[in-house]
Simulated assay, not measured.
Amino acid sequence: MKRVLTVALVIGLSATIGGCALFGSWWGPKRAAWRSEAERACLTAGAVQPSADVRPMGEIDGPGTCGADRPFKVSAVGRRSKAPLNESTALNCPMVAAVDDWFDRIVQPAAEADFGQPVVGIEHMGSYNCRPIAGHRQMSEHAYMNALDVSGFKLADGRTVRVKNGWRSGDAVEVAFLNTVGAAACEDFTTVLGPDAGAAHADHIHLDLARHGQGRRVCKGGSEPVPEGGRLLSFFEGAERTGSVPKGSDGEDEDDPAALDR
């Protein structure tokens, strides 16, 4: 009799645990709908073309709200000319398109103008990381493959211009280049945070496509003025303009995003 009861208890506990896991996946926290909408719009527009450098991945779903529906494994950025990343990384479709656009329109022309040579490589410090913003309950955009931390630019002659050393260096050309690519990034991204945004970004330029309340942008990537509203890629505009979500929940800023380690 004891043996029967023990077996029944084990089966019951297994079913309970399994049920919790099952119902947790059904009824647990969900990613904000605008994230999926932006991905679908990007894919439908053909803004990202799969290649050896941009490979489709399967859905990343969880833990919690983390992940993306149809992300890409990216090993190089740019459309007109490719710049390999120091390490392959996962990005959602809108971020791939925005990074390519920024690189082609801003980074390469600035490098040619300031250094007389192109950028042939990009160093970054990460994209996907299922974590909240340091010290806050709000999830980082990194949790949704919706952010990239750029730390350096490798030039054709082998020199690397790094944010950590170059932002306030005595080399006026490096300073000008980094300020240009950081400031103008807010034309393509909704959040740009460089060393001027605080110590948390002293060694990189944080780029993301967060949705801020009332279409607001956070532009602290350089000293150059950015036209109000910027120029979000067309496939993302609809999702970005749908307004804010409840403060502190998925996708909305805290009071001072520039002071946070996003």
Score class of each variant (00 low, 15 high):
residue 117 Q to L: 11
residue 123 E to D: 15
residue 69 D to S: 14
residue 79 R to P: 01
residue 94 P to L: 10
residue 134 A to C: 00
residue 151 S to K: 04
residue 135 G to M: 11
residue 145 M to Q: 14
residue 83 A to Y: 12
residue 142 H to V: 05
residue 137 R to M: 06
residue 79 R to H: 13
residue 114 D to Y: 14
residue 70 R to E: 11
residue 105 R to Y: 01
residue 84 P to E: 06
residue 100 D to P: 04
residue 95 M to W: 02
residue 78 G to A: 11
residue 160 T to Y: 10
residue 132 P to M: 09
residue 114 D to S: 15
residue 88 S to Q: 14
residue 155 L to T: 10
residue 79 R to C: 00
residue 104 D to S: 11
residue 67 G to Y: 04
residue 132 P to W: 03
residue 136 H to D: 10
residue 151 S to V: 06
residue 116 G to D: 03
residue 162 R to W: 05
residue 157 D to P: 12
residue 111 A to G: 05
residue 113 A to T: 09
residue 138 Q to P: 00
residue 104 D to M: 10
residue 119 V to D: 03
residue 73 K to A: 12
residue 100 D to G: 04
residue 91 L to S: 03
residue 145 M to E: 10
residue 148 L to H: 03
residue 110 A to I: 08
residue 107 V to S: 03
residue 153 F to S: 00
residue 123 E to A: 13
residue 72 F to A: 04
residue 157 D to A: 11
residue 140 S to Q: 08
residue 88 S to D: 13
residue 95 M to S: 03
residue 136 H to W: 08
residue 116 G to W: 14
residue 123 E to P: 14
residue 146 N to W: 02
residue 108 Q to C: 02
residue 161 V to D: 01
residue 161 V to L: 05
residue 78 G to Q: 11
residue 109 P to S: 09
residue 89 T to S: 12
residue 132 P to A: 10
residue 103 F to P: 01
residue 85 L to Q: 09
residue 121 G to W: 12
residue 92 N to G: 03
residue 153 F to H: 04
residue 118 P to H: 15
residue 113 A to D: 08
residue 105 R to L: 02
residue 92 N to V: 02
residue 98 A to W: 01
residue 125 M to S: 13
residue 147 A to G: 06
residue 78 G to D: 09
residue 93 C to Y: 02
residue 71 P to K: 07
residue 124 H to M: 05
residue 162 R to H: 10
residue 162 R to E: 09
residue 157 D to Q: 13
residue 120 V to F: 13
residue 106 I to S: 08
residue 95 M to I: 10
residue 129 N to G: 01
residue 150 V to W: 04
residue 72 F to S: 06
residue 141 E to L: 07
residue 97 A to K: 02
residue 87 E to T: 12
residue 71 P to I: 02
residue 82 K to F: 12
residue 76 A to Q: 08
residue 134 A to R: 15
residue 151 S to M: 06
residue 104 D to Y: 12
residue 158 G to E: 06
residue 157 D to I: 09
residue 83 A to I: 03
residue 162 R to S: 11
residue 126 G to L: 09
residue 152 G to S: 11
residue 142 H to W: 10
residue 80 R to Q: 15
residue 72 F to P: 02
residue 137 R to A: 14
residue 93 C to V: 05
